[in-house]
Structures are given as C-alpha cells and as structure tokens.
Design a protein around this nucleic acid. Sequence first.
DNA 1: TCTATATAGCACTAATCTAGTACCGATTTC
DNA 2: GAAATCGGTACTAGATTAGTGCTATATAGA
Lengths: 159, 159
Amino acid sequence: MIRITREADYGILLMTYLAQAESQALSAAALAQQRHLPLPMVSKILKTLARAGLLTSQRGALGGYSLARPPAAISAADIIGALEGPIAITECSEEGHDGCCSRQAYCEVSGHWPRINQAIFNALQGISLLEMSRPDPLQPVQFHPLRQTVTANAADHPI
Amino acid sequence: MIRITREADYGILLMTYLAQAESQALSAAALAQQRHLPLPMVSKILKTLARAGLLTSQRGALGGYSLARPPAAISAADIIGALEGPIAITECSEEGHDGCCSRQAYCEVSGHWPRINQAIFNALQGISLLEMSRPDPLQPVQFHPLRQTVTANAADHPI
DNA sequence: TCTATATAGCACTAATCTAGTACCGATTTC
DNA sequence: GAAATCGGTACTAGATTAGTGCTATATAGA
C-alpha cells in the first residue's frame, strides 16, 4: 500500500496539537505527553519541522515550538514533504534521476510519473492543517466512490 | 517521500506493455526481455496481477498473459492496489484497524485520514492504463495549476 | 503419450529502510 | 551557575522490500 512513514504520521499529530495551541510555545516533552508519543521521536520530528521552516523554536528554559505560519497556510503536503523529502512516488521521478534511469530507454511510462506525483501532491496540498486540527468531521466516508460524486477537495481535479 | 514499491512500479511498466499488445497473450519471459526486468520478479508480479483479476492467464505452451479488461477500464489505483494491498496511507486507516488504534483517544486526526486516503485514491483512480500506455505526453507539467503556475515536475519541487 | 513450454504457488535470503534511542553541545531563564 | 530546552549526529534492532529457487500443474504439439 502507499504509505507514509510513522514519522510523518506523528508529525501531523504534533502539528495539529500546535495548531490548537494558538501560537503558544510548547516543549517537546509537553507535546509527547499530550499525544502519548515517545519523547525521543517527538524531539527528532520537531527538530526536522523547525529546520524546514514550519515551526519556530525557542531555546532555553521556557522554550518550545510554535507554528511558523497560521494553520490555514500549512498543508498536509508541507508536513509530509518536510519529514519525508519530496513527494516522489518512484525512484526515477526523484530529483537527480532525470535521464540516468537505466531503464529509461524501455520505459514509456516515465513521462507519466510526474503527472501521478502531481495528482497526489495536489491532493495533499488541498488539505490544510486548519482543517485537520478541527475535531472529527463526522461525515461518513465513502471509500470507493468510483470517480464521481466525491465531496470537494483537491483530488477532484486529478490531473 | 511517499513511495510505491518497486513491485508496483514494475507492474505498471508491464501493464502498459500489455496494453500496447492489444489482447495478444505475452509470456512472462517475453515481457521481462522487452522491459529489461528480472524474470523472477516479472513472473511474481504477473501472477499477482492475474490473481487480482487484472490479467487473464493461459497456461501451457503458447500461453501467457493478457489484459482482462480494456486499458481504459484499468486505473493506476487498480494496479497499485493489486500489488500493494489497499491504498491506506497510515496503519490506523487500514481496514481492520477501526477502533483498535492505541492512540485513538488522543488523536483528533484519525477522522481526517480517510479523506486524505480518498484524495490520493481518487488521484490514482483518475489515471487510466490507456493514458499511461500512450507515448510520453511531452507536455510540460503545470505544477500548482490551482494556485500558481510553476513549470516543473513534482520531483523538481522539494516542497 | 511424451516432451517442451509456461503459469501457480510457496518458501527462502540478502539488502535496505524505518523506528526508536542515546549522547553531547549550545542557548536561555531564573 | 543550575536547570531546562533545543540542535545535531550517530547508532541499533526490527521490519520491509527486492529478488531468487523449487516444485506442481496445465497445455500444445509431435
């Protein structure tokens, strides 16, 4: 299955908590406790998010992390991208692979991967941290709604 | 990064070749040779795709594999789903995990994962094997078509 | 019927990646 | 100066992926 790592999963959990904290700085320890996640992991993830510019950090006693931008201006794609690198679904569509894939000569698909990546990226880009940090939507989710009649989100314009 | 396995990657390569073969049955060995992929892997992948109902197989001499449906009726989601299982981006959003995630009590995000999965699923569902088996689109990909116009493919954009 | 060809299914191994931990240095508050 | 907290790097165990091998079964044709 298409999977994100647990790091990105946790990252979203932490970001949603920070979104609710309304720009109040929270320490790694506090976040780990609130979300019931292992502190070392939380610490590592927050460092990465800070380096990516999604969080601002304050060192020292009473320090902590807070969102660098308003929750509406942060997307799922931002968070996942920060923790897992660029959203590239196959090796050959990653950076630095343009033209050096050993199979490229026999691969007509290569030109299509960017579109697929694009579609997934748009889907993730269309979901903001603001939305995610709201309580459960409580809408029953149709899992295989077959191309039509999907509630509006970025994935409605797949390509 | 969000990744599919190499198995699914190869699977799409093989399916596009079969789509071009126009219902002519091709053996695993022939496909492996055409796509320059290791035969045992090709063989394993084709078996899986056949079991999933995307390919029909013919045993014995002169046997081989051919598409079970027209290329327009097969999507990237079908192929990836067949080879990697259901498209579930986190463990807790997989089937059978409804309600047994140990962190669910502290996780307001859980209700949003189905939407994210849905968005990705729709994106992959919207890309047919017919489209993928056409030669390279050669169109520069618009990067954020909804927001701004950046001309680069997804992998050029580390987010 | 025999043989060559080809898929079906399962089991196995090596390499890679992920999850999680540990340590030490730098910075800030009190 | 002490305590709290972030910053960075390195490390380990376990899980996953990639790829291989073997045996059984089905089919076409001589």
